[in-house]
Amino acid sequence: MAKLTNQIRETIANLAVARTFDPRKEALDKAEDALAREAYASIYPEAELKKVNALPDNWFRPDACLQFNVGGLTIRLNIIGKGLPVSYRAKGEQTGGFYGCRTLGVIPHGDLCDRIQAHATAYEKYKGERAAALKACTVMLSRVTTTVKLAEAWPEGEQFFKKFHDEPKAALPMVRVDEVNSLLGLAAA
């Protein structure tokens, strides 16, 4: 029987939520990558991209976080892996630095605009559902104090907490007080 600490509870909750929501997140990330590449290609003409790709690497910086104005909304789309080439910021631009996410272009309307906005809505829905599931799992776990009680209350979740469930260990033999006293040369009281 292991006592459930807050750290163990958090680990169990994260494992349980990840099992359900990670595959969905991976699918959303792949879709986002495809949309980001399509949006990037719609902003920069193919002839311009060929010229950019012919230049040395240090002329442009790879950016994996692409930001667009999509139908009036500022939406960031992430690339999986190496980013796409974007120009460095000019000194004095909004943040005054050379790096950071900035709007690359405008996608005012059309099919791509609708698909990006639908993806952004789906991603926000995913985040809300994941947060609600994590909170519900955390609340449930906060009401249980040991893995034995947890196994009784939530047998379906054993795969998430079995590594914390200690098997009963053999008790050490009881040391007799008179033996200890005699070893230490103490008189019995």
Rank of each mutant, 00 (worst) to 15 (best):
T5M: 09
E10Q: 13
T11L: 11
A13C: 08
N14L: 09
A18G: 06
A18C: 01
T20M: 10
D22Y: 11
A31M: 07
A31E: 10
E32V: 01
E32C: 06
D33H: 15
R37H: 07
A39Q: 00
E46C: 04
L49Y: 10
K50V: 15
K51H: 09
V52E: 07
L55F: 10
D57W: 08
W59A: 13
W59Q: 13
F60N: 05
Q67T: 07
F68T: 00
V70T: 02
G72Q: 04
T74F: 06
G81N: 13
G83W: 04
V86Y: 01
K91C: 05
T95P: 00
G97S: 11
Y99I: 06
C101Q: 08
V106W: 08
H109E: 15
Q117G: 04
A118N: 11
H119Q: 00
A120C: 05
T121P: 01
T121N: 11
T121I: 14
E124D: 15
E124F: 12
K127L: 15
G128D: 12
R130I: 07
L134N: 06
C137M: 15
M140R: 09
T145F: 07
G157A: 11
G157K: 04
F160M: 02
F160N: 01
F161A: 01
F161S: 03
K163H: 08
D166K: 14
E167T: 08
P168E: 10
P168H: 07
K169R: 11
K169N: 04
A171N: 14
A171P: 07
R176H: 15
E179R: 12
N181E: 13
S182V: 05
L184A: 12
A187H: 11
A187L: 11
A187I: 13
A188W: 09
